[in-house]
């Protein structure tokens, strides 16, 4: 079995769904070790999952964009002899793993959906219009570095694959924060929605310019469905909802089981972020809106009528 190093840029009290998914992916490939960038207190209790090997971290927490995480990763790779290094495809993790690949003089595959036992990566490309398979050209001593898109494994499947285990061993590596270079002057936490994280949500409700400024009805619908709340760039640019909610080429890529699009025309940049959804429902008052070309179920109508009626019907059905 190969050794697999999983990188978490930050680790809280409990693993996020994306982090659990990554461990499940990694365990199908070999013996899993974990490197943690930012943490508070002791990072090991959150990793009490069976068959986790070593947990590597630095003497002090290394919050992104601290480049010393690359030193941490490089040392951890040497310690555990990792043949595969995995992380999520977020900005900060991509930065760290991209640098690591240069140091290890190896290739990196970004935005992977699945990795099989032969280390062949399956990816969705060109905004979901292609599926490709690619692999590292084999060479002795050359590990694979890859970033994963979340939401490729069912949460139930992840739960079935991961079993609670003993608290793993922590190894503190002699890595210190960098000096000079990039100095952080200010950090402002972005408001986190209590709803499921967009990229990981199984259901997404998204609104566009047609929402005309008020997202209340969409929020209610999202809550009825346990959905994440998304938006088009027109809606985020207008300031009706935070930028983090933007779905699309330059926002979040989502691949939920169900995507409900309301008052969104379906421009190519919006489609790039959602067209791999399992089922797409679109509500738009313009029957020629391009979103209808990709909708499994479309309603030509006013979202201000349709959404409240959906909410009412969902509530009625739940009794």
């Amino acid at each position: 079995m190969s050794n697999v190093l999983v990188f978490f840029d930050e680790l809280g009290d409990a693993l996020s769904p994306a982090q659990r998914e990554l461990i499940a992916q990694a365990q199908s490939l070999g013996d899993v070790h974990v490197a943690v960038g930012a943490y508070q207190g002791d990072p090991t209790p959150a990793l009490a999952i069976s068959d986790i090997g070593e947990v590597y971290f630095a003497e002090s927490s290394l919050p992104a964009p601290e480049v010393a995480v690359v030193d941490l990763l490089e040392t951890a790779v040497a310690e555990c002899g990792a043949e595969v290094i995995l992380g999520s495809s977020t900005a900060d993790i991509t930065d760290a793993l991209a640098r690591l690949a240069v140091r290890l003089d190896t290739g990196i595959i970004c935005g992977v959906g699945a990795l099989n036992g032969e280390l062949v990566a399956t990816k969705s490309e060109l905004a979901g219009s292609y599926t490709t398979m690619s692999q590292l050209i084999p060479a002795p001593g050359r590990p694979l570095v890859a970033t994963f898109k979340p939401n490729n494994l069912d949460p139930q499947r992840v739960d079935a694959l991961l079993h609670a285990g003993d608290q793993p061993d922590g190894t503190v590596l002699p890595v210190r924060p960098s000096v000079g270079g990039v100095e952080i002057l200010e950090r402002t936490a972005l408001s986190v929605s209590a709803r499921p994280a967009l990229a990981e949500a199984r259901v997404v409700v998204a609104g566009g310019r047609g929402v005309e400024g008020d997202f209340t009805a969409l929020e209610e619908l999202a809550d009825e469905l346990g959905a994440g709340l998304g938006a088009s760039r027109a809606a985020t640019d207008a300031g009706w909802i935070e930028h983090a909610a933007q779905v699309g080429q330059t926002g979040v890529t989502v691949s939920p089981q169900l995507y409900i699009s309301a008052g969104i025309s379906g421009a190519i940049q919006q489609r790039a972020g959602m067209q791999t959804a399992g089922t797409i429902v679109a509500i738009n008052k313009d029957e020629d809106a391009p979103v209808f070309e990709i909708a499994d179920f479309g309603v030509v109508g006013d979202l201000h009528d349709v959404i409240p009626q959906m909410i009412e019907e969902l509530r009625r059905r739940r009794g």
């Binding site: 029957e287 070309e293 030509v300 349709v306």
Partner: peptide
């Protein structure tokens, strides 16, 4: 494209 309907007052249902 799948099924497209025009709202006749019951599209939400």
């Amino acid at each position: 494209a799948g099924e497209i309907i025009i709202d006749e007052g019951d599209a939400g249902l």
